[in-house]
């Protein structure tokens, strides 16, 4: 029997109420141990207040070769940015 523990991706919510953020990965036999190991490996210096772990092979990722078709369409939509609109100075801050 192969004893290699599965790989987990670790997400940590920092102190300041931000989103959980991917910080790295680790091996663990199950979710409970993955959380404990993540505590030891990724929060030794007060880096977080909450941990998520997800099995790496359960993550679906976009393919690098589709980067163009996937993201290019947003390039041309400059009107989605506030800087697209000219507001006269007299109007004040908007």
């Amino acid at each position: 029997m192969s004893s290699e523990w599965p790989l987990w991706e670790v997400f940590i919510r920092g102190q300041h109420g931000l989103n959980h953020r991917h910080v790295g990965s680790l091996h663990a036999p199950d979710a409970e141990m993955a959380i404990r190991n993540a505590r030891d490996v990724y929060t030794r210096r007060n880096e977080g207040v909450s941990i998520w772990v997800v099995k790496s092979n359960e993550i679906t990722a976009s393919s690098p070769s589709e980067k163009g078709p996937l993201f290019d369409p947003s390039n041309s939509k400059v009107y989605r940015h506030p800087t697209f609109y000219d507001i006269p100075e007299e109007v004040g801050h908007m």
Binding site: M1, S3, W5, P29
Partner: peptide
């Protein structure tokens, strides 16, 4: 450490 690594995997398998 082999018995320990394998033991935890066996436990995880059974729990699952």
């Amino acid at each position: 450490g082999a018995w320990f690594r394998e033991g935890l995997m066996a436990h995880a398998g059974k729990a699952e």
